[in-house]
Amino acid sequence: MVVCDHVEGVVSSPQGPFYGALAHGYACGAHTPVHVSRPWNALDDPVHDYTGNRESLADSWGVTTEEDWSRQVEYLLGGMNVGPEVDVVLNVRRMVLRQQGHYDLPTWQNAVRKWARWQLRKEPAEVDEMVHLAGVVTRYESRFRTDGLLPHDGIVTSVFGYDFGRAVNMARWGFGGRFCDYPTAERIVLRAGELCRQHYTSWADFSAGYALGSVIRFDEEKYGHLYAAVRGPHRLLVADRTSPWWHVPFA
């Protein structure tokens, strides 16, 4: 089955930032607004978007109060929504690469099994799930290379970028739904950008991590519309000269 990306172009707000730390933070959350043709560098309007944001946050996130919203922001900035297990698995791979200079899937899975048993004291079912994750990551990375989300020898270093990118959008929707004021939303955007710089070295590196976090969280190896929802924005943000990734340095 062929799934189309359905992404028209990068939309910017003339009033929004185009350079500096705030623009960088907004650019870390660009996948979602690009996917729906909204400005990447602006918060939602608390007048025009109030009802829609409130309904969307309630339906998709269970957020109906300011406390609910604040809790979700904390989870996202803490990398707790997609969960830390995938990054543990990716970290074990980096350890194997440092020690041996190369790896294959059985070697990686064996290292994950040992690490989960002896370092993390995981239960057998949890160990099996982490070992399974290594295979899931391997298959997605292979598809990413085919679709241009990774170079031919590239690997994903972290999936925390997915939560950090969503934190930017939680700030966008929270301001639009009047769950926070503008300075609070801006601080979240800046913090998300700082966290992305701590975990990634480039926009391409970040985007591959964001995409892997998304598909592991929702796609279940179906490679359907949820996969296309990150592939299309990635391609546009990397290739379109109007993309913030062309003029906002990642570092």
Score class of each variant (00 low, 15 high):
Lys222Asp: 03
Ala251Ile: 03
Trp246Tyr: 13
Tyr227Cys: 07
Val82Cys: 08
Pro84Glu: 01
Gly154Ile: 04
Glu186Ile: 12
Trp115Ser: 14
Ala171Asp: 13
His199Gly: 08
Leu43Trp: 01
Cys4Phe: 09
Gln109Asn: 07
Val215Asn: 03
Ala42Asn: 05
Val92Tyr: 01
Lys222Gln: 08
Met170His: 08
Asn169Val: 00
Asp240Cys: 09
Glu74Leu: 06
Ala208Cys: 10
Ala185Asp: 09
Met95Val: 13
Pro14Ile: 06
Val238Ser: 15
Thr201Leu: 15
Gly79Ala: 02
Val86Glu: 00
Val3Pro: 01
Val10His: 10
Glu123Asn: 10
Phe18His: 14
Gly135Leu: 04
Val215Glu: 09
Arg143Gly: 02
Glu8Ala: 15
Leu77Ala: 00
Thr64Met: 11
Glu221Asn: 10
Arg71Ile: 03
Trp69Cys: 00
Val89Ile: 12
His234Lys: 06
Ile188Lys: 00
Tyr19Trp: 11
Pro106Gly: 06
Phe179Gln: 01
Glu126Gly: 14
Arg166Asp: 00
Val230His: 03
His225Asp: 12
Pro106Asp: 09
Thr138Arg: 09
Trp115Gln: 12
Pro233Glu: 02
Phe218Lys: 12
Asn169Cys: 07
Arg191Trp: 06
Gly52Trp: 06
Pro106Val: 10
Phe206Thr: 04
Phe18Tyr: 11
Asp68Asn: 14
Pro124Met: 11
Ala21Ser: 11
Val96Trp: 03
Arg235Lys: 13
Pro33Gln: 06
Tyr103Thr: 15
Asp44Phe: 12
Tyr75Asn: 09
Met170Val: 00
Arg145Phe: 13
Gln72Val: 02
Ser202Thr: 12
Tyr75Cys: 08
Ser243Glu: 06
Val159Tyr: 00
Asp87Asn: 15
Glu220Tyr: 06
Ala42Leu: 08
Asp219Glu: 02
Cys180Arg: 00
Tyr210Met: 06
Leu97Gly: 07
Val3Gly: 01
Ala116Ile: 04
Gly193Pro: 04
Pro233Trp: 05
Gly148Val: 14
Pro244Glu: 07
Leu77Gln: 00
Gly193Ala: 07
Arg241His: 09
Asn81Thr: 13
Arg172Trp: 03
Lys114Cys: 04
Val47His: 13
Ala239Ile: 07
Asn53Ser: 06
Lys114Ser: 11
Phe206Glu: 02
Arg98Tyr: 10
Ile155Tyr: 14
Phe18Lys: 08
Lys222Phe: 07
Trp61Asn: 02
Leu57Lys: 01
Ala204Leu: 07
